[in-house]
């Protein structure tokens, strides 16, 4: 590499870093700065250093607000996320296993239906009607069912694609030894499917944790808030306390940030493979 070329390439690096940082880091810095301000300062919406640093007391105030509603929201969100993701993984892996191994007409019909599930938006009031009829409207369980229904297609597509790379000879050997379907699935398939399962877990977890629309419709009422709904209700309750609203943003962004630091590779892989062969 010549000196000129080296300088040229450094120049591209520097320029891209500056532009992308301004566009993509500044909004997050703004969140952080506003969350540390006093109510009066935050209401100015200025991008400035807080005159007094109140981040931790603001966070504490948000956590204590309304009889510790934030804690209830975190509990509900955790229940929702863990419950949904568990079911998505098992139901999705069961389906993807038979779908890929048989590859018959039923499997192609099933995969067409899964594709429709990725595209078609939820029918809001008829879903409420169905939940009410089953007596699970306004319950976390009911919401879990809806989230599972809407995330299953993604899981099935990712898992089925990966299933193709697990050699059939492995199942056949076990079958010759007289293993039952469940045994084949749990002792052979599931462990080998693990990399794809991690991808499904991480991507669905982030998606469901961040979901706003489905909880808004199917889990209304202040007893049942999820963390995303707290943002929505704080928007009206904290109308003059932007510092607290942004402190709430800081708090609820921490879990996905942690996921991102540990699982970035799986998330990117999941979102691209799931997408490209969708």
């Amino acid at each position: 590499m010549t000196v000129r070329k080296f300088i040229e390439s450094i120049w591209i690096d520097a320029a891209s870093l500056v532009i992308i940082s301004i566009l993509y880091i500044v909004p997050f810095v703004f969140i952080f700065l506003t969350a540390a301000k006093t109510p009066a300062e935050a209401a100015l919406f200025q991008f400035s250093w807080p005159s007094q640093f109140h981040l931790f007391s603001n966070i504490r105030e948000v956590m204590m607000f309304g009889d510790k509603r934030m804690l209830l929201a975190f509990w509900n969100s955790a229940l929702l996320t863990v419950g949904s993701v568990t079911l998505i993984v098992f139901f999705g892996a069961f389906g993807a296993f038979v779908m890929q191994r048989r590859g018959d007409r039923v499997a192609s019909v099933a995969s067409a239906i899964m594709l429709a599930g990725l595209i078609i938006p939820p029918a809001v009031v008829p879903t409420i009607f169905t939940l009410q009829w089953l007596g699970i409207y306004k319950t976390v369980f009911g919401l879990i069912m809806v989230e599972v229904a809407f995330q299953l297609p993604f899981a099935v597509i990712v898992l089925r694609a990966f299933m193709a790379s697990i050699p059939r000879e492995l199942d056949e050997a076990a079958i010759m030894d007289g293993a039952s379907p469940l045994r084949v699935f749990f002792t052979i398939i599931l462990p080998l499917l693990w990399p794809a399962i991690v991808t499904v877990i991480v991507v669905s977890a982030v998606f469901i944790y961040n979901d706003f629309t489905l909880p808004l419709y199917f889990l209304p009422g202040s007893q049942n808030v999820t963390v995303q709904l707290t943002l929505y209700s704080f928007m009206s309750q904290f109308s003059s306390k932007w510092n607290l609203l942004f402190a709430d943003v800081v708090i609820i962004t921490i879990p996905p940030l942690i996921m991102f630091m540990f699982f970035q590779r799986q998330i990117v892989a999941g979102m691209t493979t799931g997408a490209i062969k969708g």
Partner: peptide, 24 residues
């Protein structure tokens, strides 16, 4: 070893909470 009933859990949830409301 690849029984159709493996579809059942996914089919029930997807059917009841997606297909039925969409049809309704």
């Amino acid at each position: 070893t690849y029984p159709y009933w493996f579809y059942l859990p996914a089919a029930i949830v997807f059917g009841v909470f997606f297909l039925v409301p969409t049809g309704l």
